[in-house]
């Protein structure tokens, strides 16, 4: 019996400042698209994020960074991901990350960076294609058995 894997995503907002409106909108959109979203909210350190991702065994981590600290936060998250065996997990970002920093972050291992104002559908599509799932989700064991 083959069952479809449910995509699990961690959404967090690292840093001490800012608000988590954007992160909440994304979390809601992903769960509406059939994913399980572990929502951590504000004030997360890289350690907290990666520990949580490891225990929750998520397929992707999405971070909203508004503080301008992206060039330190993402590399730190990536090095912890390697340490904690979370390196098979997609890392993507959003918030206010100027385009000039994208090449550096991508070289470090951030898979995708979304610009402010991105349609959430684009993020859903990105995750579904990157994680090999294009079908809208149906709860396991109900509709699939007809």
């Amino acid at each position: 019996m083959t069952t479809k894997k449910t995509i699990r995503v961690l959404i967090a907002k690292p840093g001490l400042d800012g608000h988590d409106r954007g992160a909440k909108v994304v979390a809601r959109a992903l769960s509406d698209a059939g994913m399980e979203v572990i929502y951590l909210g504000l004030h997360q350190t890289p350690e907290m994020i990666v520990n949580t991702a490891a225990d929750e065994d998520v397929d992707a981590i999405g971070l909203s960074v508004l503080s301008g600290a992206h060039n330190t936060i993402f590399p730190r998250v990536i090095s912890l991901m390697k340490q904690k065996e979370v390196d098979d997990v997609l890392l993507f970002g959003g918030g206010t990350i100027p385009e000039k920093d994208h090449p550096f972050l991508k070289a470090e291992g951030v898979d995708r960076i979304f610009m402010p104002g991105t349609d959430t559908k684009e993020i859903v599509f990105y995750l579904q294609s990157a994680l090999n799932d294009s079908t809208p989700s149906v709860i396991e064991g109900t509709a699939s058995k007809s």
Binding site: S31, G34, E36, I38, Q44, P136
Partner: peptide, 22 residues
């Protein structure tokens, strides 16, 4: 709860447990 329509879920309980994530 998972949504009966999309199958997705917003899992937010950890917000209250974050003191213990380290």
């Amino acid at each position: 709860p998972s949504s009966p329509f999309s199958g997705g879920a917003l899992l937010g309980d950890r917000i209250r447990f974050q003191k213990y994530s380290l």
